[in-house]
């Protein structure tokens, strides 16, 4: 057996993770859809009745890309981190460590499954939002591209969190303390152009700004930064995650004794 890539292993891990998702389909799909709907009601209806439009876009429609990103980021991170943390917690990680699989293959299986779930979720939320605000998507391929790239990137990020975490609290803390605030501050519900110049500069250090801006551009052709910059930043973050994962498996950090 001298194959370059252990595809059987990738498929096995992917299927295992997808089966886990299907068992918990209720929490996985229904609860994010409900919370997104609540955001629509609260922000879209309550605030939208005062702010009618931002940069020529009806407020209700303007927040859709941000809300999808909010869900995409938190769900990708949480799914992927739980997926790899759980075998560490129960001890079944021994099998992954003793198998002829590379870090790349393990990450492909776990991240692929987590990203798939997030993408499906993102599309469901998009469909849900259509019920509230019918809208047009200017660049559907860019939209899908950003959706897929972001899901993969943040699943990679979640995978790292799942390896780093030493308990269930730490597993929860990153999405709660980092992802959600960064998303809220990253222009989910407003354009960063409305901020004073100093704060506009500060937000440029928030990676989520680039994601939301690029994603929103794909919908409405309005953005805080150029979509190419958004794309480049997403790819940069993705490469950073991949390198970290490669190092983790090479060194055995938190995995091997």
């Amino acid at each position: 057996m001298n194959q370059a890539i252990n595809t059987h292993a990738i498929i096995a891990i992917y299927k295992f993770e997808m089966a886990r998702t299907l068992r918990t389909v209720w929490q996985s799909i229904v609860s994010p859809v409900i919370s997104t709907s609540l955001y629509f009601v609260v922000f879209g209806a309550a605030i939208g009745s005062r702010i009618t439009e931002i940069e020529g876009i009806p407020y209700g429609a303007f927040i859709v890309p941000g809300l999808i990103m909010l869900m995409l980021l938190t769900q990708s991170t949480m799914n992927a981190s739980f997926g790899i943390y759980f075998p560490r917690f129960t001890g079944t990680i021994y099998e992954l460590l003793s198998a002829p699989v590379s870090s790349f293959e393990i990450a492909c299986g776990f991240v692929g499954a987590a990203a798939t779930k997030s993408i499906i979720l993102g599309l469901i939320i998009l469909a849900t939002s259509w019920l509230f605000v019918p809208m047009q998507i200017a660049h559907p391929f860019w939209m899908l591209g950003f959706l897929v790239l972001t899901a993969i990137t943040f699943s990679l990020f979640g995978f790292i969190i799942g390896i780093w975490a030493d308990g269930f609290e730490q597993l929860q803390i990153i999405p709660l303390l980092i992802i959600t605030p960064l998303t809220f501050l990253g222009g989910t519900f407003y354009s960063t152009h409305v901020l004073p110049p100093f704060w506009q500069t500060v937000t440029l250090f928030n990676p989520v700004v680039y994601l939301i801006s690029g994603f929103r551009w794909a919908f409405f052709e309005v953005s805080d930064v150029s979509p190419w910059v958004s794309l480049a930043m997403t790819l940069l973050f993705m490469v950073m995650c991949v390198v970290t994962i490669w190092w983790i498996f090479k060194s055995g950090y938190r995995l091997k004794k």
Binding site: M1, Q3, N6, H8, A9, I11, A12, I13, K15, F16, A19, R20, R23, T90, G91, T92, Y94, E95, L96, S98, A99, P100, V101
Partner: peptide
């Protein structure tokens, strides 16, 4: 890929079926 290991601790998945978990291992080993 030449090695099979039965660990000392009883570490198994919980919600998978016996058939699925054994098939999973085979796939994992390529």
């Amino acid at each position: 890929s030449l090695i099979g290991l039965v660990p000392q601790e009883l570490t198994t998945d919980a919600f998978e079926t016996v058939w699925d978990t054994v098939s999973f291992s085979r796939g994992l080993f390529g």
